[in-house]
Computed example of a mutant assay.
Amino acid sequence: MTEATVRWFRRLPVEVQAVQVVGDETGDLGRAIARWCHGSVGGDWTDPVITVGTPFGPATARCGDWILREPMAVGWTYRVVWNPTMGADHEEIGPDMREPQA
């Protein structure tokens, strides 16, 4: 990926990959994140909106949100974790866009 950093987190008993949605002046970061999660990108370049397929149906991630990639028996599954500091931008929260549990 260009500058978006994929990080590893351990969610016992598995490790997951996560990338935070960020934008740039050229749109390269949004497109790179969408390729990484097999999603689609919309919005403008500095504030991309990425739609990704999850086990619960499509979920939308905006700037500041995290997209998690978790191993499954066959391939990967994806989840979107809503960033609560970006609250005003999130009018609808789907079943896979809830605040992380403590």
Rank of each mutant, 00 (worst) to 15 (best):
G43Q: 08
V49I: 07
T77D: 10
E99W: 11
G42Q: 10
V6L: 00
H90I: 03
W8T: 12
E25T: 09
W82Q: 11
F56D: 14
P84Q: 01
E91C: 09
P58T: 08
F9I: 09
H38F: 07
P55H: 07
P84G: 02
D24Q: 07
G75L: 01
A61S: 04
E99G: 13
P55T: 02
G43K: 09
L68S: 06
G43V: 06
V52T: 00
V22N: 02
P95V: 04
L29M: 11
A4V: 00
I93K: 15
D24W: 04
W82M: 09
W8S: 14
S40T: 13
G53E: 15
F56W: 11
T51D: 12
Q17C: 06
A59P: 03
D24F: 05
L12Y: 11
E91I: 14
A88K: 14
G87A: 15
E15I: 02
W8R: 15
R31M: 07
M97P: 01
E92V: 14
S40A: 12
D47V: 09
G43F: 04
A88Q: 13
R69C: 10
P84W: 00
T77H: 05
G87N: 09
W8Y: 08
G27W: 06
W76L: 09
V74Y: 01
T5G: 01
A88H: 13
V21L: 00
G57F: 01
A88I: 11
G64D: 07
R62F: 02
V49S: 09
P71Q: 06
G87Y: 07
P48Y: 04
W36H: 06
I33Y: 00
I33K: 03
D28A: 15
E3I: 08
R62G: 15
V21S: 00
I93S: 13
T2E: 09
C63R: 13
V41E: 12
V81Q: 14
V80W: 05
A61T: 01
D44T: 10
R11H: 08
D96E: 12
G23N: 03
M1T: 05
C63E: 06
W66K: 03
T26V: 00
D44L: 07
V21I: 02
H38Y: 08
G64C: 04
R7H: 05
G23L: 03
P58H: 07
E70T: 12
H38N: 12
R62I: 10
P48L: 03
G42H: 07
L12E: 14
R31G: 07
P48S: 04
D44Y: 06
E91V: 15
W45R: 15
V49E: 12
E70V: 09
W8N: 13
M86D: 13
P84S: 00
E91G: 15
A73G: 11
I50Q: 04
M86C: 13
